[in-house]
Design a protein around this nucleic acid. Structure first.
Lengths: 303, 303
DNA sequence: CACATGATATACAAAAATGCATGATCCTTA
DNA sequence: TAAGGATCATGCATTTTTGTATATCATGTG
């Protein structure tokens, strides 16, 4: 049997159905109609010679075959999105869309002023910021530029080392006034600790070093870093915080300063994007901004 | 202005035009007609808002914008091909297409018997072998499995270390009978040396170690490894050859055995493919076969 | 139990993409 | 210099794809 290559649009349809769980929902998402989506799936199944979904009236169940193809379809989608982004800017100007990926804390607390400064200098630059603690695979081009906490190990990556972000235990002054300040590690057992999920690189590193801080002792847990950070800021207890971040808030007190964890930080982007002005400018500005965040030597630490 | 996402098929057309250099040639390649291709390009240019080609009657010149988009389009194409390959095999059987990438010498001289053995055990397995000394980026999924000469440094890669392939200087007995056998490194200047291009990893490693073997002293050069290997086999001069390979040929004599270069060898594949039987089986068989090539300890070194 | 909601499948009309035929231009070659 | 070959552009008929409307079935709710 000869397989003629199916239309690439079918892959887009296929992914949408996979993501939305029904022909109708996929149709709404793509701006097409349900019969069209159904015919696309029919055609794709015919082209590859196996069933992709088991049809039922309340939706479609993906088969194993469909699930096996899903990562490829996702790569197609992110590559296509990256292509559109690359096409969005004129060649010799700093304009168009740049997509940045960073951890939640970095993305929410550190990057906004840096990005604002970039955009002040380059008004035509559009920034998409993906702030998530899930590891985004830079090579899938989900992001043009990534701020990462692990040393980039891939070949085609242009990476700049920012430095080591120290983390320490902090608490709000109000909390300490009320519950006292711990003097030794052992005192922590009597305190309200603010926890974190076990997914981020920083947590894994910490657990290795201070295994006594296991999750059972936490009084407040969330898988959302900003939630935890704000719990800390509102006096919810003692928790970890990036030291440079805490420095901006006079009410946060560094407790047990002998406990310290380091987050090695990098900015990485595709080598190909070096020649793209908008990516290059953003990359350089991110590197400079993050270094300034780490070591505010010059006095331009911005409002 | 709102950009509606263009049809993904346009990307395929775009890449074909880029690769073939004209609308007509791309049309022939894709099985469409030249006006259709032209309209696709028109539509794509309209969608992204910039010119992709400067039209002329003897072909199309890609603009800078088009060249910037090319890598993305290539990724789309290879991903789409990988998707088709992934779909080609039934789920629980060792069938369908596996694409292997290896260097020319490994691919042409070492792998064929190994692959033959695999296919003897699994008749429904179709193997595509890409034998090239260009580095194929495994993460672009151009190949499902790669035999590489550098340690895989990427995250999502399942890699197995094969061992170190030694390389040494060899010559055909006939050549040595006629021109004499070199006793010292300095003697090489009086001999016909068989050269190689400077692209492969092995060459770069060698040049570091034996800078005296610079290209000017070569009597025969080619950028094609098999050509060189065959020149050696036919008595064309003295050149490098993988030691295990030369062992199979009684007429090849190891000269100046103190000169030795090592090629560290790995087999790598995507972690996702671990659950694909055809890839998993091929991967394991390649690892076993290559290890046996390196150390034929058991006496099943096959015909 | 009736009814509203949301799902897929199908028939037919409308819209869009494609192919064909042709013309114009440029480069190569005899 | 003239002919041949290859290219892109354009008008028109045809094929293909898409949308609309409707039928049917399952599920959850008052």
């Amino acid at each position: 049997m000869i397989l003629t290559e199916p239309s690439w649009d079918f892959y887009r349809t296929f992914l949408a159905v996979l993501q939305h769980g029904s022909l109708s929902a996929a149709a709404r998402d793509l701006g097409l109609t349900q019969p069209t989506i159904g015919r696309h799936i029919d055609a794709l199944e015919q082209a590859i010679g196996s069933e992709l979904f088991t049809r039922s009236q309340q939706g479609l169940m993906p088969t194993d075959a469909a699930l096996a193809l899903k990562p490829y379809a996702e790569t197609l989608a992110s590559t296509s999105a990256a292509l559109m982004r690359a096409a969005s800017g004129a060649r010799d100007t700093v304009s168009g869309v740049v997509r940045i990926s960073a951890s939640e804390v970095i993305g929410a607390e550190v990057l906004p002023p840096i990005i604002a400064a970039i955009q002040e200098a380059h008004p035509d630059l559009v920034v998409e910021l993906s702030a998530s603690d899930m590891v985004e695979d830079l090579l899938q081009r989900e992001a043009d530029i990534a701020v990462r906490m692990i040393a980039p190990s891939q070949d085609a990556l242009l990476a700049r080392h920012i430095g080591v972000i120290p983390l320490g235990l902090f608490a709000h002054r109000r909390y300490l006034d009320r519950y006292g300040t711990p003097e030794h590690l052992g005192d922590l057992g009597k305190h309200r600790l603010i926890g974190f999920d076990r997914q981020t690189a920083f947590v894994r590193a910490m657990m290795k070093r201070y295994p006594m801080l296991e999750s059972p002792s936490f009084a407040f847990k969330s898988d959302h870093s900003i939630v935890l950070l704000n719990a800390l800021r509102w006096g919810g207890g003692i928790g970890f915080c990036q030291v440079p971040l805490a420095k901006n808030n006079e009410d946060l007190v560094h407790v047990l300063p002998e406990i310290e964890i380091s987050l090695d930080t990098w900015v990485a982007m595709h080598e190909n994007l070096r020649s793209s002005p908008r990516c290059r400018v953003t990359f350089d500005a991110l590197v400079a901004g993050l270094r300034n965040y780490l070591n505010p030597d010059t006095e331009r630490n911005g409002r």
